[in-house]
Amino acid sequence: MASEGASGGMPDPIHQFEIKRLIPMELFGYDASFTNSSLFMVIAVALIVGFLLFAMRGRALVPSRTQSLAETSYEFVAGMTREGMGEQGMKFFPLIFTLFMFIFTLNMLGMIPGAFTVTSHIVVTAGLAVLVFVTVLILGFAKNGLHFLKLFVPSGVPIYILPLVTMIEIISFLSRPVSHSVRLFANMLAGHITLKVFAGFIIMLLGAGAYGAIAPLPLLGAVALTALEFLVAFLQAYVFTMLTIMYLNDALHPGH
């Protein structure tokens, strides 16, 4: 992170998204290098599992502060799942909980200055979105057979516009993984770029003589944006999880 300020005084806001290959590796002919992104994924996994196990070590009936934090995250996601899919949706609770904790932790890790934001890469968010999409497809056809296709034929629509509506439904279904992944990716990317740009303004203004007097303005902006970014980090994890639940619910109950 320190090696910046190269091009024309303005720190490069894109630099933070660069993938650095820490340990070059290859797998079946594909580049499988252990990168800074991989490092943060591993850190996230270790943090989540480590924290939850540490918090639950007492298994107390009256929870300690850390234990109640772990339980709150469990109850939060369980409540979301139950509300969105009903009791039979609890089969997918581990998957949903994993998704939420993984994205949330990666987003939050990205807020540490100098850290890498894994979710600011569309490859990662698309990978997760495709995982959900494929799960929905498999689950939908396995559970309902061809009845799953009723998802595209809403009931109560007049027959003469039904083809049109069906087309729209199919397109919207197919575009789900795109919007699902781009939403998270774009939010994290844009937020981090904006933060970096505002922070860059401070340095530029300080280096510009009399204009240094208004340097505190972008500083305030950066502080406010940081708070906002924490909110976004949580919110996008929540939104991603919520949409996953909605899509899975469609697979369980395709009739509109």
Partner: peptide, 15 residues
Amino acid sequence: SPQLIWLAFTFVALY
């Protein structure tokens, strides 16, 4: 490919 492969590793491990 490095991101997808490591995403698969870590996500499956976490799951």
